[in-house]
Design a binder for these strands. Sequence first.
DNA 1: TCTGGGGTCCTAGGACCC
DNA 2: TCTGGGGTCCTAGGACCC
Length: 359
Amino acid sequence: MNAARRVIAHLDIDAFYASVELQRHPEARGRPLVVAGVGPRSVVTTASYEARRYGIDSAMPAARARALCPDAIFIAPDFAAYRAKSREVWSIVRARFETVGQAGIDEAYLDVSSLERPLPALRELVAQVRERTGLQISVGVGPSRLVAKTVSSAFKPAAFVAMGREQAAAHFAGHAVRLLQGIGPKTAQRLAVAGVATVGDLQRADHTLLAQRFGERQALALRARAHFHDDSPVETSRVAKSRSSERTFPADVSDQARLEQTLVELACELGVGLRTRQRRVRTIAVKVRLDDWTTVTRARTLPHFTDEGATIAATALELLRAYAPPRPVRLLGVRVASFDDESGGTPAAGHGGQLTLQL
DNA sequence: TCTGGGGTCCTAGGACCC
DNA sequence: TCTGGGGTCCTAGGACCC
């Protein structure tokens, strides 16, 4: 790896789902638009910038969004359409750039270190995507993924900003720590208790004090992040490590037969997915969320691989029955992992602990 | 106004082996 | 005979991200 200058770009499609819906519903242009499910427990997946002015944002309960802006246009998500549009966008990007690491349906990192003049190339790309797909991309550029990502999110929509590491550290010093990737609500709260509110506070925070509260490793990582140190590479291909299906019931369920029926359906969905992808798994897990929001997981690793819905279902049923939910169930999920084509492969068969008894 | 669904990574503890 | 340390695999929970 060349330790010399790294130039990383982060690309983010502005209000992606909402923008796709605006193309299909031109009459909604200029009006607040919210993409959200229709169920009583659904949340907002994306809000247009007009809707964001009312305080509506992603992950907010749809009922609250309605209360904030009853005149907004609500549209149920059409993920197949978004996936198709996403493929359009990223194939344009991949045709022009070599090192593209997709980080979700609407964003990607590009390593443009080898380019003589990366910024004009990125400008052209943004224009081409807008022309061919009608979608606006925000771009952040920096010496690392962390700087690039922070910059694109801070300046979107229609961002096009480049910054160095020290420049970012100075520019964002006054912002809340929550701005930094990897610092979520819990960590932000714990930092606040320690008197750390802004990125600048975190840059100056006493290491011993941070290490006491967060442990040596995390303290070092937090400080590095505050100074925008990051040497993580742009990964162009990643293999999934697990797959899952889960369902939140419209109303909590106590009926055991109904729970088991749902579990079998989820297991079969996963089985179909495994067979179409020609992958097999050894670990099967269930997830149960009770009405009081406590979440319990139970997992079992089989001695053999499987891609059959029936096997996944049978194991999941055993795990669910052994747990026996003590309260009404809000959510039920099944997850599979330990794929047969993971590095490391099959564990040595037939060399279990009981063999030592023969000695 | 109660909080989706699909993932990843990290930590911690126990079992087991050498 | 009261005393190890390293390594791997597995489970459970939690934080975070899109």
